[in-house]
Each structure stands twice: as structure tokens, then as C-alpha cells.
Write a protein that binds this DNA or RNA. Sequence first.
DNA 1: GCTGTAAAGGTGTTCGCGCAACGTTCTAAG
DNA 2: CTTAGAACGTTGCGCGAACACCTTTACAGC
Lengths: 155, 155
Amino acid sequence: MTLLHDEGLTVEELAVWRMLQRVQARIARHLEADLLDAHGLPLASYEVLRQLAEAPGRRLRMNDLAERVLLTRSGLTRMIDRLQRETLVTREACPSDARGLFAVLTDRGAQRLAEATPTYLRGVRTRFLDALGGDEVGRIKDLLHRLGGPDAGHA
Amino acid sequence: MTLLHDEGLTVEELAVWRMLQRVQARIARHLEADLLDAHGLPLASYEVLRQLAEAPGRRLRMNDLAERVLLTRSGLTRMIDRLQRETLVTREACPSDARGLFAVLTDRGAQRLAEATPTYLRGVRTRFLDALGGDEVGRIKDLLHRLGGPDAGHA
DNA sequence: GCTGTAAAGGTGTTCGCGCAACGTTCTAAG
DNA sequence: CTTAGAACGTTGCGCGAACACCTTTACAGC
């Protein structure tokens, strides 16, 4: 229980944070590689398509979508540009607010998502869940939920 | 316990992975911002300096260091270039292997690290640990350790 | 000794992202 | 009605990272 400096952190606590970083990065990198060379789809793009697929009307406001996929609005603009170039997504005006735009999943986008999803799920299974006991999923979920703040809950 | 596709994942399991991503990204972004505007030091640079400070002789082979900070070798080359420009790090030849280079922490680097560390630790405390009960640290450490694979253990 | 293979590190290039600034539209206060 | 401020999305810019490739060195087999 050796304390570090005057912040009252133990080395163990610090190590936990480092581990969290490593684990997340490692898994994300694997998933990215899997998706990329099986479907030419970056992980971030996959997440965007998935969010849209889950949203009512397959559409989400840019701002809203940006928050969900942890991108800035400008970052999302470029991402949607790319996806639109591949005709996986369209932009549609928002009737109730002329400032707003919807990102809308196209049929091709939905199909592409469907193709990639098995790869993604298999990756999550093998890179992540297999290392955990089934009962531990519930516990880690509980812990992460506490860390996720007030949002972060989208079953 | 609804299952997804044919991979045998539950929605809960998938949600846990998403949460892990969100939590890590959110915290890292906060730490980055804190370090950046208090000391003009990106989080990744901080991690490099810290790894060097903890290493015997304040030095690490480039390849070795790259793995620890989750960078490719080329990424680390540029990073060390930058840190060297600020005289926080030096490169030294490896006596036993002419191909090898050490990245070595300078005194200025150590000092800069010391200045930034309270900010870093305070960030980890407030953005991460405060949301956890003390007893939960041990549990999450155990879980992450399992996910971290054979390495990832540096107290 | 040579030769082939692998490893270490660096370089050219490309790409994705965040920040700051901008135009547009909505909304509230007067 | 007018005007100040905020919200939404986009754009110019610079930075940081990965990928593919290159040089140099180490090490194995013959």
C-alpha cells in the first residue's frame, strides 16, 4: 500500500488505470485489423453504421451521433463524407430545424454492416469475452457503468 | 439473455465492451486536456517519460519502449524526435548491439515529468478512482489483468 | 569466409482527428 | 421587430500515427 506523492494513490490504483488503457487499445487494434482486412471497414466506421442501424428511422442528427461515437462534430463531418462517398450513408435535412442534418443509413450501408457484424462479434468474443468468466461480465459491467457517467447506456 | 446472431453474445456482453471503450476514451481525453493546458505535455509524451523514469538507468531500447507505450516503432521515432527537440530525452547507442538505440531520460525530462505528475495523478484520482469504491479497485485489477494477456504487468 | 534471413531503427507518404474560426439558423430579451 | 447569443454543421489548418519501404547490423547455415 505504498502511496505515491501526495495524491493518495497507491501503485496498485495507478496500475489499474494503465491496464485499462492497454486492454482497450489492444482489443480495439485487433478488432480494427480484423474488420479492415475482412471488409475494408475501419472500426470507427463500423461503430457509426451500427449506431445508425440501432436508431429509429436509421437516422441520427450529426451532433447526436458525434457524441455516441466519441468524435468531435468536425471529425464526424469527415467521417460521414467518407461513408457517403461509399454510399453507405446519406445526409438528409431535418424538417423541424433547418440547421440540422440527419445522417441516414442506406440499404447498402445496412448490408455492409450486416456483412461485417459477424467478424466484429467474433472479435469481441475471442479478444475480450473469452478471457472473462461469464459471471465476471456482470461485475465488470457494474464497475464500468459507474465510470461511464450518466449516459453510456444503450443496450 | 437475448443472443445476438450466431456468435452467442448477449447484448449485455456487447454493451460491456462498448462501455470499456467509452470509459477509456473519456478519461484519456480528460487527462490529455489537463496535462496539455497545465504543462503543454500530451498524454502520450507523459507516458513515454514515465516509462523511461521507471526503467533501470532511465533508458529503454526503442523497440522495447514502443511496445510499452503502444506505439509502432515509426510512431515512437517521431515522438522521440519531438521530445529530443525539447531536450527531455536523448538517444544513445547500445554498446552490445550496434543496431540498437536507447532513449534516455534527461534531467530536464525528469524534472518536467515531476512537474506534470501531480496533475496526472490528480486526474486519475478524480476522473477514475473516485468513481470506484476502494475495494473495487482490486476486483477490476483482477479482471483487467486477465484481459491484459501475458504482459501488461508493470507495477 | 559467404549468403540468406531476421531484427532494429528511420524515412516518405497518407490519412484521420481535434481545434479554432466561419456561416447559418434558432431562440430569447428588449 | 430587432438584436444578442447560442446551437448546428462545415472548413482550414496542423499534428500525430500507421503503413510500406529502406539501410544497417546480427545471426544462422553451409
